[in-house]
Write a protein that binds this DNA or RNA. Structure first.
Length: 491
RNA sequence: GGCGCCAUCGCCAAGCGGUAAGGCAGAGGACUGCAAAUCCUUUAUCCCCGGUUCGAUUCCGGGUGGCGCCUCCA
């Protein structure tokens, strides 16, 4: 049974109860990449948010059909291809492969469909013809333009007024400056397909209208994308789809906030401060990125800076280490009774763990508030650690901490965060950070052995000197009850 | 200029009518041979000015500041 939830709708600018076209099912379309370069952490933000959203809906019993397109025919692709002397489609498909590599490395689910413009020409031609037939589009010199003034609701999503858009040049035979291309007549050296109006290629917006309808029907439940797509892209999609199909296009518009640089501006190629996914993932586990994106509400701008990933990793490590502590607890028996015996801190973890599912759902069902959910998780982590400080916790605390471990498993299933086995994660952190620091495990083990020998003889000063050497190389030594352990300094 | 969003502790960030979650960083304490980790303690007149209300960070109006879009953008 699908659980109800609420979602902010850009069209109405309010949080609404979600009511799908078909009970229990969600048709979700998300604008994907224009593939002319590698994916950067800004793109990944949208990818990760919708990936997490899909996981959550499925976790809550919804049957989700998730479509995310590739725009592989576009001005920017053509320009880039001309620069490097490559066939535009070949270039686009090269970057689709790269995108898949990045997406897989980030731990993203594949959408159910990933349509490409180049494979959707038929649908695009059909929709364009429909728009001409219905008097919403006109042909000029082999190009087809959408006539904005034929659609009264134009501008409703973005709050733009058609009158004000007219100031733009009515170039290339457009009747109005606000009109936009559905089909562009072929120019020499550009990819082109035959059409009733002559050879050409699709305009920028028509693809999404066509691809969304062909996979999800005339009315889709949720359409997602970055906030920067609201105008003109999504506005134009509405115009095309509603005029062409005569049906409401989208029930809920879900826009994610953009990644911003510490300077306040969004990340962009023109600013020259772009971090690619593969670079980010070289030094940090994929889970780091997921936590980084989820720590903010999805509609807020997300600040990026040099400390963003290190800080996210510090947070994540805290979570994983708390889970490791809980996992190490043994014992058996009735949790309730045991908690009473072990004291208030035991009772606290037990209760927090048990209350967690309801809190998680409350946060996520209300406009997908991952930030709030994360706050709750950290409280749980602290409760575990506090309890773990008790002498008897490790031997007997297992049952008390079982609901907390279940809570972590729940988070993993519902959001993809904490989905990695604890040991794997902690190991990956070491491997990646060590590689970044240029130090090997063998070197560390050797130093540790040296220090242990000195400690055994209580030659503290010398032992501390060895520790100091390691510390200088960003290795932190930890003497625990179970022996000597070490961590890589974060940051 | 037009449209929209936002302003909460040093930094990041929830909350959105009943005097403020969480994280990072800092300080002090417990623990430790000393550390680290962990735990405890500790830091908020919620941008300003009006208004509505018994009561506002939360609602309304006006400022100020920031950002996004209006040309390609996740």
């Amino acid at each position: 049974m699908a659980a109800p939830f609420r979602l902010y709708n850009t069209l109405t600018r309010t949080v609404e109860d979600f009511v799908p076209v078909t009970p229990g099912r969600v048709g979700l379309y998300v604008c994907g990449m224009t593939v002319y370069d590698r994916c950067h952490v800004g793109h990944a933000c949208a990818m990760m948010i919708f990936d997490t959203f899909v996981r959550y809906l499925r976790h809550r019993g919804w049957e989700v059909e998730f479509v995310r397109n590739f725009t592989d025919v576009d001005d920017k692709i053509i320009n880039r291809a001309n620069e490097v002397g490559e066939d535009p489609l070949a270039l686009a498909h090269r970057f689709i492969a790269a995108f898949h590599e990045d997406a897989d490395a980030m731990g993203l689910l594949r959408p159910d469909h990933e349509p490409k413009v180049s494979e959707s020409i038929e649908d695009i031609l059909t929709l364009t013809q429909q728009l001409i037939d219905r008097g919403h589009a006109y042909v000029v010199d082999g190009s087809v333009w959408f006539s904005v003034e034929t659609f009264d609701a134009y501008g409703r999503l973005s709050g733009q007024k058609v009158d004000e858009l007219r100031s733009a040049d009515a170039a290339e035979g457009k009747r109005s400056g606000a009109d936009f291309a559905l089909w562009k007549a072929a120019k020499p050296g550009e990819p082109a397909w035959p059409s009733p109006w002559g050879p050409g290629r699709p305009g920028w917006h028509i693809e999404c209208s066509a691809m969304a309808a062909s996979r999800l029907g005339d009315t889709i439940d949720i359409h997602g994308g970055g906030l920067d797509l609201v105008f003109p892209h999504h506005e134009n999609e509405i115009a095309q789809s509603e005029c062409g199909h005569g049906a409401k296009y989208v029930r809920y518009w879900m826009h994610n906030g953009l990644l911003t640089m510490s300077s306040g501006q969004k990340m962009g190629k023109s600013l020259g401060n772009v971090i690619n996914i593969e670079d980010a993932l070289g030094a940090f586990p994929a889970q780091t990125l997921r936590l980084y994106y989820l720590q903010n509400h999805y509609r807020s701008p997300l600040p990026w800076g040099d400390e963003a990933l290190p800080e996210a990793l510090a947070m994540l490590s805290r979570l994983y280490e708390a889970r490791e502590v809980a996992e190490a607890m043994g014992g058996e028996g009735d949790a309730e009774q045991l908690a009473k015996e072990l004291g208030p801190d035991a009772e606290a973890v037990l209760n927090l763990g048990r209350a967690f599912p309801a809190r998680l759902y409350a946060a996520l069902d209300e406009d997908f508030n991952t930030a709030r959910a994360l706050g709750d998780l950290f409280e749980l982590a602290r409760a575990i650690n506090r309890f773990a400080n008790h002498k008897k916790a490790k031997k007997r605390g297992g049952p008390v901490v079982a609901p907390a471990l279940a809570a972590f498993a729940l988070v993993a299933d519902a959001t993809g965060l904490m989905a990695q086995p604890t040991r794997d994660f902690l190991d990956e952190v070491k491997t990646k950070r060590l590689a970044a620091l240029g130090i090997t495990r063998d070197e560390i083990e050797a130093k540790l052995a040296e220090r242990n020998a000195l400690r055994a003889e209580k030659r503290w000063a010398e032992a501390d000197a060895v520790r100091g050497e390691l510390d200088a190389r960003n290795i932190v030594v930890m003497d625990t009850a179970d022996g000597v352990d070490w961590r890589v300094k974060l940051g």
